[in-house]
Design a binder for these strands. Structure first.
Length: 455
RNA sequence: GUGGUUGUAGCUCAGCUGGUUAGAGCGCUGGUUUGUGGUACCAGAAGUCGCCGGUUCGAACCCGGUCUUCCACCCCA
């Protein structure tokens, strides 16, 4: 018989993995809630037209489409069918698609429920998303995003707070030294304007984003290929040697962009965030201005944030976000500025595992196992177990009166720290023998001593 | 979507230029020990060598396809 398997890019999670994942989830949830965000959920799939066209051409390709129910081919006429153009046939045979991220469904939610929502609306959402990508390290076809967004406020204090949220979560998780990189779409537009390449903004930013990966020459080469002039590249030169503190970078940008009012606006926004974060302080993370940070998502209009793992860990970004002035506009609600961030749970997990950062206490294991000596003894044990559970102690009885060695081995393999023996001797004395599985040490206790000890 | 890579026992992996009954370690089951696990010793079970097809007297090994893994590109959390 063929062994069953999960689909490409998906995984099963065992008890320990789930405990560890929950630990991250809970840390993020608690932090979101501390900052005033409230949870919502949306369906795992949306109408195709809600998602299609919102993530660019590449995004459309990566959206999982759901085949219509019933005789879906009958709605495709012969001419279209024989044309064999998948892009044209897809909308005819598929009207629903799996969620690709949490931001677009959130925008849909806001527009749909605008009359019930009190603005500014702060929500968080932790749910899986799906992408028909080729799996790689830290890249799956099903993974969790943990998003927090605010809509209905243009205040730059939101940006400041989101930087704090990142810092708070990673500090609580013990993931020190992450860099929170920040940029502003207006600066990128301003630069494009200054060098006379406004029409090539996307190509320009995509190429610039690769600087740390393919280097200065690689970026220039790609820009040339995309039709950006030598003269423009000349003007861009300062960007390639952009170093120093955030203040120094801001000053350089002011010099570089003084001809572009849009660019200057972006610099001001950046300066606001940078200065206030400096005053308020961060726990373990560093805020870094990175002018080459672009991010593919085309709905960002102001701040762009990306979080990368501490140095030395080979992992893409573990979180990202930004400000979008018109996300709800695509669904018909104008003038609703929003700002949000996302945590990539699965990548954070891998990084934490890599750095050995999970505390041992994360495990949801039992505190003690009662050895089963037979029916009469089991009842005696169950009475104690019932009471212990009422006091919140995680205990269980080995279900069968198997050989002691087997029962001990079971406790050992499951890493249960204590076993409790209650046979004839103990029953007569109304006691329990508690065994420490690590040291092997045993001692007799009455029920209240036992309860006190395990509590 | 493009190019490459991987798949042998539950797990990690050997297996020579194609040649009889495919191996190891760990794990598992039973025993040494009928109230004591994690160490020791003894015995045992377990694999249509990812799947389908082809070449060959003969395929785990060569060829094609397919699925999966990982990697690079693209893009992204």
């Amino acid at each position: 018989m063929k062994k069953p398997s999960t689909p490409k890019g998906t995984r099963d999670f065992g008890p320990e993995e789930v405990s560890r994942r929950n630990y991250i989830f809970n840390t993020i949830k608690k932090t979101f809630s501390l900052y005033g965000f409230q949870p919502i959920e949306t369906p795992s799939f949306e109408n195709s037209d809600t998602l299609m066209g919102k993530y660019g051409e590449e995004g459309d390709r990566l959206i999982f489409k759901i085949l219509n129910s019933g005789d879906y081919l009958s709605k495709v006429d012969d001419a279209l069918y024989s044309e064999k153009d998948s892009n044209k046939v897809t909308p005819k045979i598929s009207e629903k698609a799996l969620r690709y991220d949490l931001t677009v469904p959130f925008a849909r939610y806001v527009v749909q429920h605008q009359n019930e929502i009190t603005f500014p609306f702060k929500r968080y959402q932790i749910q899986p998303v799906w992408r028909a990508d080729r799996p790689q390290k830290g890249r799956f076809r099903e993974f969790y995003q943990c998003d927090a967004d605010v809509v209905g406020s243009k205040s730059p204090w939101q940006e400041v707070e989101f930087v704090q949220v990142y810092d708070a979560v990673f500090s609580k998780l013990g993931l020190k030294g992450v860099s929170i990189k920040i940029n502003n779409r207006k600066i990128l537009s301003g630069i494009a304007e200054t060098i006379g390449a406004e029409d090539k903004l996307i190509d320009f930013t995509v190429a610039l984003d690769k600087l740390d990966k393919i280097g200065e020459e690689g970026v220039k080469k790609e820009m040339r290929e995309k039709g950006i002039s030598e003269e423009a590249l000349q003007k861009l030169q300062p960007l390639f040697s952009f170093r120093g503190s955030n203040e120094e970078k801001i000053n350089s940008l002011k010099g570089m962009l003084n001809a572009s009012s849009l660019g200057m606006k972006g610099v001001e926004e950046l300066e606001f965030i940078s200065e206030n974060i400096k005053t308020l302080g961060l726990q373990t993370s560093a805020l870094q201005i990175d002018v080459t940070l672009a991010r593919g998502l085309n709905y960002y209009t102001g701040a762009i944030i990306e979080v990368s793992a501490p140095e030395g860990v080979n992992m893409g970004s573990i979180g990202g976000g930004g400000r979008y002035d018109d996300l709800t506009g695509i669904f018909g609600l104008k003038n609703m500025s929003g700002m949000g961030i996302s945590f990539g749970l699965d990548r954070i997990y891998l990084v934490m595992e890599d750095l050995n950062l999970f505390p041992e206490t994360v495990s949801e294991n039992s505190d003690a196992l009662f050895i089963n000596f037979g029916e009469r003894e089991a009842l005696y044990a169950m009475k104690a177990i019932t009471n212990l559970r009422k006091s919140g102690v995680k205990v269980e009885l080995y279900p069968d009166a198997a050989k002691m060695g087997k029962q001990m081995g079971y406790a050992d393999k499951r890493n249960i720290p204590f076993t409790i023996l209650a046979g004839d001797k103990e029953m007569e004395a109304e006691s329990f023998t508690l065994k420490n599985m690590k040291s092997g040490e045993q001692r007799a206790l009455n029920f209240s001593e036992l309860e006190q000890f395990l509590k």
